[in-house]
Design a protein around this nucleic acid. Structure first.
Lengths: 113, 113
DNA sequence: TTCGTATTTCGTCGTTTAACGAACAAGGTT
DNA sequence: AACCTTGTTCGTTAAACGACGAAATACGAA
């Protein structure tokens, strides 16, 4: 279920690593999803359906965004029953964060313009 | 040429902030593009068409990925003329990096389960 | 000037995404 | 038991993405 169509002639380890980073980035590749994470940062406590009204999209659309964030591991949903309590999973950003740190500390060659 | 279709009824400041983060994340939301950045990290010097053979996709497809990375500001292309010299622009990751740092340092509520 | 090399643009095709409303699921409340 | 509240799933639609090959660009070299 986690296996995609593998590139077949590439080194598996590298591909996996790239995929992991890309998948987290992709999950954050939509303003609504960034806003959801932002919201969970502000109200550090978990939240229910307030997210729906916070970002101003239809409930079904918001649910889909939450699903994507859940699938990526960035957030966790705890069912409290009429509603669902969401919270961040800070560890999930690790791979992407490490990658970006490496990029930000890279020394560019010589022609910076 | 850099102007997209603006959202028009939203508060510009907030949207811009979320959009900026999301746009960088989106640019990194594909393994091939992460691999390109990775490659530029390893060979700290700029590269021409070697990227094409490095990632194993068609030249036209690779060109498109490079365009997306250029548009996002993550990389810079210097024309040397038969070819193009690419290099990283580490500053571009700033907004996303700051955001992820905030996330990674967030203290989750109480139910770490 | 003609040729070659590296890259981009174009047109196409199939897949995925984003968005919505409607319908459904699942318990708590009255 | 009938209802309410919240959240997800489904079906649809339009737009965007990803990939490719073919054609076009744009210079440097021969």
């Amino acid at each position: 279920m986690k296996v995609k169509t593998v590139v077949s002639q590439q080194d598996a380890a590298v591909v996996t690593d790239l995929d992991r980073i890309a998948r987290i980035a992709k999950a954050l590749g939509h303003p609504a999803r960034v806003q959801i994470v932002q919201t969970l940062l502000n109200r550090s406590t978990c939240i229910g359906c307030d997210i729906v009204e916070e970002i101003g999209l239809a409930a079904s659309t918001t649910s889909e965004h939450l699903r994507i964030l859940k699938d990526s591991g960035l957030i966790i949903g705890e069912i409290v029953r009429p509603r669902v309590c969401y919270s961040l999973n800070p560890d999930a950003v690790g791979p992407l964060l490490d990658f970006l740190n490496t990029v930000s500390h890279a020394d560019v060659p010589e022609f910076p313009e």
